[in-house]
Design a protein around this nucleic acid. Structure first.
Lengths: 112, 112
DNA sequence: TCATAGGTACGACTTGAATCGTACCTCGGC
DNA sequence: GCCGAGGTACGATTCAAGTCGTACCTATGA
């Protein structure tokens, strides 16, 4: 259509993103990344998810497919990084919601 | 804990809300309600969902259980209303995201 | 060169959730 | 009083999604 110059985040689909965030493990990853303003690169292993390696791979795959993370393959390691700018542009406030959950769970000691 | 005076929206849980919004039919209802600033009361039937009556009941039940809607039982009809104030207080920006999707889908002719 | 650890694909199993038919309830309109 | 329509509970079926074991790949460190 008339809008031909794609902007970062245009690839993000609300339904896909919400389905990705509906899972507690993936949401925990996004909450942690949203709360960390340094936006550094991290490995899947560094998130300490209480699931098997294969399940962890599945969840990071889902987050990447939803366009929430970008990834770099190092062979025996994968660097993942939050696509903060793209997400903020497409869904303003979404990462703030997630980040707020981080301080909220440290206050109440839980995240569903 | 120390915070004993509950505020509107305190009952809203992010995980439950995101799971409710992960479904396309429920999301369509919420997008329509978020975009309508009059916040009037509506019946389940008025949303014209392309599913059976029983499935429709299921979806509205899920939205209500997630705390996104409040409802009034009229016997042969149910009035539902968006809990805008509670949602805005607990998840600032969430309803704006949904409302933006309404104008976006009229521009691009689709919502996944 | 070998061991280790991060990561992945595939397939199978389990669980969660969406679907709707059947049967019923309730209220408003006629 | 009857009819029609909105709505619901229950149970069964189907489909989506989460889980992980097996077997493998790859890079790094010793």
């Amino acid at each position: 259509m008339p809008e031909t110059s794609a902007m970062p985040g245009d690839d993000l689909d609300l339904g896909t993103v919400l389905r990705a965030l509906a899972d507690a493990h993936r949401r925990a990853v996004m909450i942690e990344l949203a709360a960390d303003r340094t936006d550094g690169e991290r490995t899947c292993h560094s998130f300490n998810l209480p699931v098997s390696k294969q399940t962890r791979t599945h969840h990071f795959r889902t987050l990447c497919d939803a366009g929430l993370l970008c990834e770099v393959d190092y062979g025996n390691k994968k660097g993942v990084r939050l696509r903060r700018a793209a997400i903020d542009r497409r869904f303003p406030g979404l990462l703030d919601l997630l980040a707020a959950e981080s301080s909220r769970s440290t206050r109440f000691g839980q995240e569903d």
